[in-house]
Nucleic acid binder design. Structure first.
Lengths: 146, 146
DNA sequence: GATACATCCTCTAGCGGCTAGAGGAGCAAG
DNA sequence: CTTGCTCCTCTAGCCGCTAGAGGATGTATC
């Protein structure tokens, strides 16, 4: 009836990957670096992931999508495991990440403008008069090239 | 009179690093991967960078800052070395990069909003009711977690 | 000269966060 | 029993550097 273990207790790694959106080798990698506790195994030595494991994997995936690095995720997970603590640390981690992201957006915006200008001004003739190349070659704030 | 080789012909790697804004080991790395031609050497086996080398280094640095990967830079440099060709390729490379950047900006924008909302809604009490953790744990579009 | 110190050299190994592939074992269906 | 899938472990590779060991060279001072 069920090829997809709808109500089941524990699932093998392939299904865990499908359900969590984390690829199979990545799941094993997370286990290896201790982000995910080693799951139970079958007699045949296959990993069996519980629903809790799947939730943890989804948590990790979401956090990675938000650009948190593994250390930050480790911290967030350990917070999650101690719900009686103050969540000030989680807040701080998220705030730090927000600052990073805003900074990155600002810099990418400048970058986009420069790229757009570069492309805009390129008449697409010979490389000799190509604005794209020229712009890249231009000496900048930093460069004190004689 | 000159400790900084103001009008000089060729400079050692440290000065090349200062002038181009590319770090010493990175310059050697660029040489190693063939992004920069191996420069001349002194009798004592030290690299000597010409002004041309410095311009090339600055070009590379600027392109890296704009997020071009090494392969793209290789292509751009080879275009620069053949100024009689059409610059359509340079244009295409830059356009592709612009698309990437715009995409990245859009995704970072969404991300910023999510982070901001997360932080905003967190009353900073116990982890148990922490929006930051909760948001990360929430099952998403992708997840079909039972 | 001798000495001190900065700069340079080559080489290997490591970072983060995976990803790919070899070589084999387990398991369910026909 | 064989086919074909999933799973296992292990090692090595990706990018773009960065760090460190261990040694040679260059320059300034005494």
């Amino acid at each position: 009836m069920s090829q997809d273990n709808a109500a089941g207790e524990a699932v093998p790694i392939g299904e865990a990957a499908r359900k969590s959106g984390v690829k199979v080798p990545t799941i094993r990698y997370y286990e290896q670096i201790g982000l995910l506790a080693a799951p139970a195994r079958t007699g045949g030595n296959r990993r069996l992931f519980t629903h809790d494991d799947l939730r943890r994997l989804a948590f990790i995936r979401h956090a990675r999508e938000l650009g948190f690095d593994v250390e930050a995720i480790r911290a967030l997970l350990s917070l999650q495991d101690h719900p009686e603590q103050s969540c000030a640390s989680a807040d701080a981690i998220a705030r730090a990440r927000l600052v990073e992201v805003e900074d990155r957006i600002a810099r990418l915006g400048a970058l986009r403008d420069e790229l757009a200008r570069m492309i805009d001004e390129c008449a697409c003739g010979r490389v000799a008069e190509c604005r794209v190349i020229e712009t890249l070659a231009a000496t900048h704030r930093h460069g004190a090239l004689a």
